[in-house]
């Protein structure tokens, strides 16, 4: 269970990016985080695994406080939080398998990881994850030989290799075409269901979010302005989150609205 209380974040001399965020995410729940650019979605996600240091407030995962942990504790806790990135964030000149196995780094000594001598269990699991995301034949290819969708699958397998208790997903489909986007979202959804894994998915595409997540949180100007089931999302709520716009999917207006 992830619990966030009174979370605030302010960059140097800037305005408050996150204003008093309170959240509880139970086991197994997939949460979609929506909101306009600059609403603080990305900052919120990065505060949870401490890629960004929050200014104040409490974050606890499974009863362990993350917001005032020491660097060593942070590294230890990051092992349990898998993260999937917008631009895949693979190390392009390493093999697919090394990218997946890099999810185990937090569990290995430097020397083990330097010589690439992973425990057999890790290797077996990595192959299973590659099988799961459908890339078993590409294990020894270099990551830069893969297409965008394939790279995102490697990113998912890397997050799985961490054996996480929470999945943070930052704009997983922003660089993908609509069909691949759906496939990736479906993959993330089914994996979370299988493992009972909670996930926070930061996403721009509202219809896609409504299709694949349980709960939606709308962020606007660093504040939560909506928190409810995906089915409860309507035009009023969207206007509250994004501002005035014609939300009807049909018609010519949609083109004008897209910026």
């Amino acid at each position: 269970m992830l619990k966030i209380q009174h979370l605030k974040k302010q960059y140097k001399k800037g305005p408050l990016v996150l204003k008093n965020i309170n959240l509880v995410i139970p086991e197994g729940q997939i949460v979609g985080l929506i909101g306009p650019s600059g609403a603080g979605k990305s900052t919120l996600i990065r505060c949870i695994n401490r890629l960004i240091k929050p200014s104040s407030g409490d974050i606890s995962l499974g009863g362990i406080n993350l917001s005032n942990a020491s660097p060593r504790q942070i590294r230890e806790q990051r092992r349990y939080i898998g993260m999937i990135f917008q631009e895949y964030a693979l190390v392009e000149r390493l093999s697919v398998m090394e990218n997946v196995l890099s999810g185990r780094l937090g569990y290995l000594s430097f020397w083990q990881s330097f010589t690439r001598r992973y425990p057999q269990q890790d290797i077996d699991n990595a192959f299973d994850y590659l099988q799961r995301v459908g890339l078993i034949d590409h294990a020894n290819k270099r990551a830069d030989e893969l297409s965008g969708g394939q790279r995102q699958r490697v990113g998912i397998a890397r997050a799985l290799a961490q054996d996480p208790r929470l999945l943070l997903v930052d704009e997983p489909t922003a660089s993908l075409d609509p069909k691949t986007s759906r496939q990736i979202m479906r993959l993330i959804q089914s994996i979370c269901r299988e493992k009972g894994l909670p996930a926070i998915i930061n996403i721009h595409d509202v219809p896609l979010a409504m299709q694949f997540v349980d709960r939606i949180i709308g962020l606007q100007g660093g504040e939560i302005v909506f928190d409810g089931l995906a089915s409860e999302l309507n035009e009023d709520v969207l206007t509250r989150i994004y501002g005035n716009e014609d939300w009807q999917p049909a018609g010519n207006d949609q083109d004008k609205g897209d910026e």
Binding site: M97, I123, F127, A139
Partner: peptide, 10 residues
């Protein structure tokens, strides 16, 4: 159980 060895590209 599967064997894996780091591939070398250079």
């Amino acid at each position: 159980m599967r064997h894996w060895e780091r591939p070398h590209y250079i």
